[in-house]
Design a protein around this nucleic acid. Sequence first.
DNA 1: GCTCTGACGATTT
DNA 2: GAAATCGCCAGAG
Length: 102
Amino acid sequence: MKLTEFELKVLNKLKHVPRGRVTTYGALARSVGRPGAARAVGNALNKNPDAPITPCHRVVYSDGRLGGYAGGAEKKIGLLKGEGVGVKNGRIVDFKKIFYRF
DNA sequence: GCTCTGACGATTT
DNA sequence: GAAATCGCCAGAG
């Protein structure tokens, strides 16, 4: 699995996100030094070489909406709820409170 | 090197 | 508050 430096940095940063917390694509993009590259970040997560290791399910929209997931939206919701993250109508409950800032 | 695509984001109506 | 629009960056062909 060959990944670019950008993708590797994104995945690595994502691993630093603690359990029960969520982050956004934009914040993740900033953490790797590419503000505004939220889309590219999403593309990188989509490859998701190590699904269980990399908590890609903890990445959501800046609005607090879930966004997407390679394994399916339902799967993402289940994982989040399993960590204590409330999900209501495809939206994160208390998103601002559990938002992880790098 | 150009063009298209996509798990986004902020602005506007 | 919801929906539509435009702009954004990194890969793949």
